[in-house]
Design a protein around this nucleic acid. Structure first.
Length: 485
RNA sequence: GGCAUAUUGGUGAAGCGGUUCAACACACUGCCCUCUCAAGGCAGCAUUCACGGGUUCGAAUCCCGUAUAUGUCACCA
């Protein structure tokens, strides 16, 4: 039987990183199997929490990441509909709930909320048992059904024995066993007739033939209850893959509440979707070899449930930045240029050779948004301090620099072939002639024509791009600035 | 508080009873090198795997306890 996994978000806001990682892993697990199917299901049974446009964000994010689902609301499939609210309308959950009642796995409950609250308040919470002993479970079934039919408000609760234990196997956490007495008889069908997540989830996973349930570990403690439902129906249980959380720091999960980055935010900050995906795949999972850069297809091949860890992984923006830089540097020059052209144009409005600028940038920028600020010197020669000529490593200072720059000026003045090669030949002859290190000429020159200590591309590239006239203008001005000191 | 799960360096982590077991990567530090910075290369960076016991000839790896963290105990998902 081929693998079927699902990503089942509820459209309550934006797509956070932890969610995206769960989607990714579910995708990878499905695609590991050539016949595997990845399904998108929208869980919108909480009508109160729906957020306008949230579904579109889900579609957009998945598309941008290349996480293509084989079945879902927009593409259809054999086991639809794929939106829970639509499934509710068919009465499907209620039918199954009633069936479950007949099978002894659930019962009607007529308790009103006040009663329940009072009962819970009166209960000793430290005894370790379930928080509410529902008296309705003792009701005569015929009687209960009659009351429900007659229009009395009700919910349907799961019926759980108070004795014994329930256990299940999780692919990442192993076998987990709990006492039934600690399991709450949760509501399956709410008084508005909608199923709760707890119920809809089980029904849908079964009806959609989900073989591998991939979800956050916050569901670990409720999984025994789900298995009790599967058992009551006599259904096959899926494999469970509970994912450790993605943390902001040691203490808190990554969340919108904390103002943490969403996928959309990361895009705005100039990261590549491929790099983000690559990075988050490894949050809590590690490959068997030491490979670090993976395309989606490579992840599919390399991914292995056995290597998912059990501890929360801290989302490290610095590491992401480094991975992103690796991706950027690894691109072929033409695609890179297409990608960064808008960012270069943001800073460079004058008529310089953008492709040459791009090739300098490619070796240096780790994110897209850091590009414009490192290029601002092209359009306007910035004011700068002579202190920039101090460089410990190059052993340069304003005095040495002045000497070097004057040499540069005389050499460049007579240079008519302003090509990279000619510039290179001319300028590299200087240090040899003067008996100093290359850097003692080229570093001052870079400062003199860019007004910065570090730039994408070297002094020679910058001079070439700037052109003879502008280079000499800046050079003269810098020499003057040094002499006036 | 009950229950569940976890605890390897600043970070992600490998290792899951025994020939270097504390890999690899990020970050950091130093050096080298290409025309400079960056990138790249090399080197350094946990005598030790939360703590305390135990099992064993031998434990980061198994067991027990303590501490800490996270999750859960909703007519939210």
């Amino acid at each position: 039987m081929s693998i079927r996994t699902r990503f089942a978000p509820s459209p309550t806001g934006y797509m956070h990183i932890g969610n995206l990682r769960t989607a990714l892993w579910a995708y990878l697990i499905a695609k590991k199997d050539p016949e595997g199917v990845f399904i998108l299901r929208i869980e919108d049974t909480d009508q109160g929490r729906l957020v306008e446009g949230a579904t579109d964000i889900i579609y957009d994010t998945m598309r941008e990441c290349g996480l293509k689902h084989d079945e879902g609301p927009d593409v259809g499939g054999p086991v639809g509909p794929y939106v829970q609210s639509e499934r509710v309308r068919s009465g499907l959950y209620m039918d199954y709930a009633k069936k479950l009642i007949r099978l002894g796995g659930a019962h009607y409950c007529f308790c009103d909320e006040k009663t329940i609250e009072q009962a819970k308040a009166a209960k000793d919470v430290t005894d370790g048992n379930r928080s509410y002993d529902d008296p309705c479970r003792l009701l005569d079934p015929e009687e209960a059904e009659r009351r429900a039919e007659s229009g009395e408000p009700f919910v349907i609760r799961q019926t759980i024995p108070s004795e014994g234990t329930t256990s299940f196997d999780d692919e990442v956490f192993g076998t987990i066993t709990v006492d039934n007495s600690t399991l709450d008889e949760q509501v399956l069908i709410k008084s508005d007739g909608f199923p709760t997540y707890n119920f809809a989830n089980v029904i849908d996973d079964h009806l959609m033939g989900i073989t591998d349930v991939v979800r956050g570990m916050e569901y670990l403690s409720s999984t025994p209850k789900y298995n009790l439902i599967y058992d009551a129906f006599g259904w096959d249980k899926p494999r469970y893959i509970h994912c450790p959380p993605v943390m902001k720091d040691e203490h808190s999960k990554l969340s919108k509440r904390n103002g943490d980055a969403s996928f959309q935010d990361l895009m705005k900050k100039g990261y590549l979707p491929e790099a983000v995906l690559n990075y988050i795949a490894m949050l809590g999972w590690s490959p068997e070899n030491n490979q670090e850069i993976f395309t989606l297809d490579e992840l599919v091949k390399a991914f292995n449930v056995k290597h998912i860890g059990q501890n929360g992984a801290i989302f490290d923006p610095v590491k992401l930045t480094s991975i992103n830089g690796l991706w950027l540097r690894g691109m072929d020059p033409e695609s890179y240029f297409q990608l960064v052209e808008p960012y270069i144009r943001e800073a460079v409005k004058k008529d310089y050779d953008l492709r040459k600028i791009a090739s300098g940038v490619q070796q240096r920028a780790n994110t897209l948004v850091e590009i414009p600020p490192m290029l601002d010197f092209y359009d306007t020669f910035p004011a700068y301090s002579n202190d920039l000529y101090f460089n410990k490593k190059m052993k340069t200072n304003p005095e040495i620099s002045l000497v070097s720059l004057k040499e540069c000026l005389t050499a460049l003045l007579n240079l008519n072939d302003w090509s990279f090669d000619a510039l290179h030949e001319t300028l590299m002859a200087l240090p040899a002639k003067m008996g100093i290190k290359n850097g003692q000429v080229l570093f001052p020159l870079r400062v003199a024509i860019s007004g910065k200590q570090s730039t994408p591309g070297g002094a020679i590239e910058i001079a070439e791009i700037l052109g003879k006239e502008e280079t000499l203008r800046r050079l003269k001005s810098s020499i003057q600035q040094l002499e006036n000191q």
